[in-house]
Design a protein around this nucleic acid. Structure first.
Length: 324
DNA sequence: AATTCACGCAACCGCCCAGGC
DNA sequence: TGCCTGGGCGGTTGCGTGAAT
């Protein structure tokens, strides 16, 4: 009816790798008009690309704040645990790693982590549940978590540091552009493609209108999932703990983003804590441990948090949680 | 040095959902 | 109210590159 047909089926649409010239055209256009209304991009720029391709190129490659290169053990841990918790919800997982795109995370999972997890699952198969909760968790925390939790040799090695120490100009520009997905410096890894330098060269201004935050929606989704899953396991306290960890992550996440988000998330945290207390069990300790594990880098706290996480997720998480 | 193989990643494909008409 | 589209997301593909032979 109302709308003209999508360009996706149009004739003469170019496919394949993007050229630097196309990247420059796309970035220049978005710099002037902002992201969104992707259908207008090829029309107004002359790019022989479909709107989806433009959007994908921007979101996965050109937008500022994207960190490329190797994933840190910290990031690996977050991905593995969130994948175990949420499944292949790459966009949701990516919301916890604002420097990484869902496509990147998906690729990394498929090429690296899936094999890793599978291998370790097989190794722990004969004594799965026991090793899951005790031996594996404690051993891994003792032997490998320091690197996993904190890697001081790499200034760009963890996302949460950036979440809390995000003060450079580019980051601020990026945050203005993506208020719901805190972004960080692109200087972390050497760019493998000249296109990665384009966002740095083209100073992004404040033209990008803030989009409605998704953090509360994500939190709400995760919360309901966690509640459902754990309550099915007759573990309301565990459900509340997981919900709180999600809320905490979102709260911390959004604290960098906007005060509105923070207040909203705080309400959700309070609601979740209330749920836990209603069951007569204190979950506050586990909350903070989980939050620390997900978002902080203090080695000791993180190791403790990992144990806490394992305790509440045992029997739920199918993936062997320790592999570093 | 040439060929084969495996891997990583950018990009495409297809589906779903929300919203415009 | 139902059709249609744009945007978003997860799954898959294909090409480039480096390692192995």
């Amino acid at each position: 009816m109302g709308r003209p047909p999508c360009c996706d089926n149009g004739v003469g649409v170019k496919k394949g790798p993007w050229t630097p010239e196309e990247d420059i055209i796309l970035v220049s256009y978005i710099q002037q008009h902002g992201p969104g209304n992707w259908r207008s991009v090829p029309e107004n720029t002359g790019l022989m690309r479909c709107s989806k391709s433009c959007r994908l190129r921007w979101t996965n490659y050109l937008r500022p704040g994207i960190k490329r290169g190797n994933f840190t053990p910290h990031e690996e841990g977050i991905i593995i645990h969130l994948q175990a918790l949420l499944g292949n919800k790459w966009a949701a997982i990516a919301s916890y790693l604002p420097q990484r795109t869902d496509n990147d995370i998906k690729n990394y999972w498929n090429t690296h982590l899936k094999k890793k997890v599978k291998r370790l699952q097989q190794q722990s198969q004969p004594d799965h549940h026991h090793s899951f909760q005790t031996t594996t968790a404690s051993n891994a925390a003792a032997t490998t978590s320091p690197n996993y939790c904190h890697n001081p040799s790499s200034s760009s090695s963890n996302s949460s540091n950036h979440l809390h120490n995000n003060h450079n100009l580019e980051s601020m520009q990026s945050m203005a552009a993506y208020p719901n997905t805190t972004t960080c410096s692109t200087t972390a890894t050497a760019p493998s493609n000249e296109a990665t330098t384009i966002p740095k060269l083209l100073q992004l201004q404040t033209w990008m209108k803030p989009s409605p935050t998704t953090s509360e929606a994500v939190a709400s989704c995760y919360k309901s999932m966690a509640m459902q899953e754990f309550q099915e396991e007759q573990e309301p306290a565990a459900a509340a703990a997981m919900v709180s960890s999600i809320n905490g992550a979102c709260k911390d996440h959004s604290a960098v983003i906007s005060s509105d988000d923070k207040s909203l998330s705080s309400e959700m945290v309070a609601a979740a804590i209330g749920h836990g207390e209603a069951d007569g069990r204190s979950t506050a300790t586990t909350f903070s441990l989980l939050e620390n594990w997900l978002l902080d880098d203090m080695p000791g706290q993180a190791m403790s948090a990992m144990d806490g996480f394992l305790e509440i997720s045992a029997g739920y998480c199918c993936a062997d949680p320790i592999m570093f």
